[in-house]
Design a protein around this nucleic acid. Sequence first.
DNA 1: TCGGCGATAATGTATGTACATAAACTTTCG
DNA 2: CGAAAGTTTATGTACATACATTATCGCCGA
Lengths: 277, 277
Amino acid sequence: MQGLVRQGLTGQDRGGGPASQPGDPAQGGLPLDGALDGRGPLFDQIKRAVAGQILRGRWQAGQRLPNEAELSSLYGVSRQTVHKAIALLAREGFLVRRRRAGTFVATSRRDRFALPIEDIGDVVAREGRVYEFRIRDRRSLRNGEGIRWPDLPDGTPILTLECLHFSDGTPIQHERRLVNLDVVPEVIDEPFDVVAPSRWLVDRVPWSSADHTVRAVNATAEMAALLGVEAGTACLSIRRQTMHLSRPVTLVHFLSVGDRFSLSGSSITDSATELNL
Amino acid sequence: MQGLVRQGLTGQDRGGGPASQPGDPAQGGLPLDGALDGRGPLFDQIKRAVAGQILRGRWQAGQRLPNEAELSSLYGVSRQTVHKAIALLAREGFLVRRRRAGTFVATSRRDRFALPIEDIGDVVAREGRVYEFRIRDRRSLRNGEGIRWPDLPDGTPILTLECLHFSDGTPIQHERRLVNLDVVPEVIDEPFDVVAPSRWLVDRVPWSSADHTVRAVNATAEMAALLGVEAGTACLSIRRQTMHLSRPVTLVHFLSVGDRFSLSGSSITDSATELNL
DNA sequence: TCGGCGATAATGTATGTACATAAACTTTCG
DNA sequence: CGAAAGTTTATGTACATACATTATCGCCGA
């Protein structure tokens, strides 16, 4: 074995390790703190080791790190394995790679903080409360007739829905939705007496992409009445447009009372937590 | 050559293709629509082909797809290449893999919508406006003395900052920040006359993780005065706690006027857009 | 019938080898 | 001296091979 590499699994010895001299116990002047920890697959150990150097600030942003061949002999594994580890770290945004030039620590990714947006039904259910919804209005018309969905050609048939979501009987979210009937014609026959529109759509048209905009607005008198708050109460407004194969599927406006609903999430570098350092 | 595989690059022929019989022009009854398109690396072509089947609904959620050996001969590439493509799609959340059982289309990931949260300075700059900030208050004290940072032991030295951010001279965001002096002692000597605290911290302590909470609140009279709006105006409140190697670094409250600031982002399945289908 | 247990089929990891590709560097030539 | 052409170096992709790891399936016996 190579000393520090690969314990924890069955750990039978394979052929001959790569370059590394047969029996270097302490490795000249190289940073031994970069040693592997024997937990899990080799490429994961290397990911952890490298990410650790970065997180601990030993390898600073912009700095160039050893090339694959050097890392390979440093860690005593093949270049393939190093390549896999480094390529994954690059894909996760820790590193930037340029041919011939080398591999560099990415200049930090300040813009990658992210906030997950969940379905209201899931949120309510997870809080252990009773979730209900009620359809307040539903009509079928063509785009441009009274309502205009900007990203859709005029005349396209659409279904409009308005509904309210409740948590333990208290209204917490108002929803106004447009659905593209060209994409999901079956929706016309769905009564939405059991399953909520958002859920129905997600089950029907999976794997879509979406745009979001989140803003804070003061409740209008009408909305305030529906949500059971005073006019002017701060509300979170979420606009979501969902696309499937570059065709708009649905456009929704959610409005939720500020102190009954919030977006939250521990985030960023979910990969870093995966690395558990 | 294998017919459909790999054009667009230089496309010299390598050794001998894998299993596939030498000269099957149209492949029995197999879905030929799964054909590769010759754009980019083979494993990317396979990713696109497979993701396409899923997005077009030909392979439905929960359904099992052919094993690596089958895909390998279906597409006329080695198992390694198929493995790389499929493993990446799994890592991106499209597929779920279980040893011995096989590979399955993931049951859609409704909860993965995500919003990026950016630094206000970047946002203002990108809109082509002039960004400025002003420190309104700054003091150094110990946790528990007047202010309590819940995730930090009492007595820990902290720096408190209060500042305002401007876009073209209009105040758009208020910031109240606590900084853990045990982690970043140098901050005590930083005047913040040029670089804003958030930027300074990001440059100093990169690669951290963070928790966020976003809510809508009505502006208090004091805040309204600072932001130049009427009391009660709906504001977006963002709370962010940043950690580095599981130690809290900074805790911030941002407050921004609802109609001067919004969070937005096209999101989810950024991998799907990368696949450009 | 049920429990255990072994065969088996799928994915997962690691290495070797060979070239391709891109960009930085060097040399050459006008 | 500067642009073009060639060289070198680091990463990128592909394939072959070999073995590890795990559920699942099915058999067999109590």
